[in-house]
Write a protein that binds this DNA or RNA. Structure first.
Length: 112
DNA sequence: ACGGTGACCACTT
DNA sequence: TAAGTGGCCACCG
């Protein structure tokens, strides 16, 4: 949990960052989709970790949610509902922490 | 070098 | 149909 080692992350993390940055405005994707796109379909957790470090970069981590469209990482996102606020700014609708019409706003990196 | 951790996903009861 | 458990990969101390 140290922020002084960001320079060490040069392969998997950056790979995640690139994909997240490719997420179009008004769309979202999932950790599993990213992981699978990178060829590590089972390392979705690592993607979450990358998002954790993404705070040091300009990564729209708020556009990344779990496979059911729930903002699992909102607590890690600066503390509270900022993640939700950002997504709402992108015309997303919520039911609590669940994105409505998630399937409709879902963006698959492979479909890019 | 080893064990523990994590913003998850899929399979099995 | 719903809930529970394990597995998986990479990073940190």
């Amino acid at each position: 949990m140290n922020t002084s080692n960001q320079a060490s992350q040069n392969s998997f993390f950056e790979r995640c960052y690139l994909v997240v940055q490719r997420i179009p405005y008004g769309k979202v994707t999932t950790y599993g989709a990213i992981a699978r796109h990178l060829g590590a379909g089972k390392s979705a957790r690592v993607v979450g970790w990358a998002m954790n470090n993404s705070h040091d970069r300009d990564i729209p981590a708020h556009r990344v949610v779990n496979r059911i469209g729930v903002l699992t990482g909102k607590h890690h996102f600066g503390g509270t509902h900022i993640m939700k606020q950002l997504l709402q700014s992108e015309s997303h609708q919520f039911d609590g922490d669940q994105i409505l019409n998630f399937k409709d706003v879902f963006w698959d990196p492979t479909d890019d």
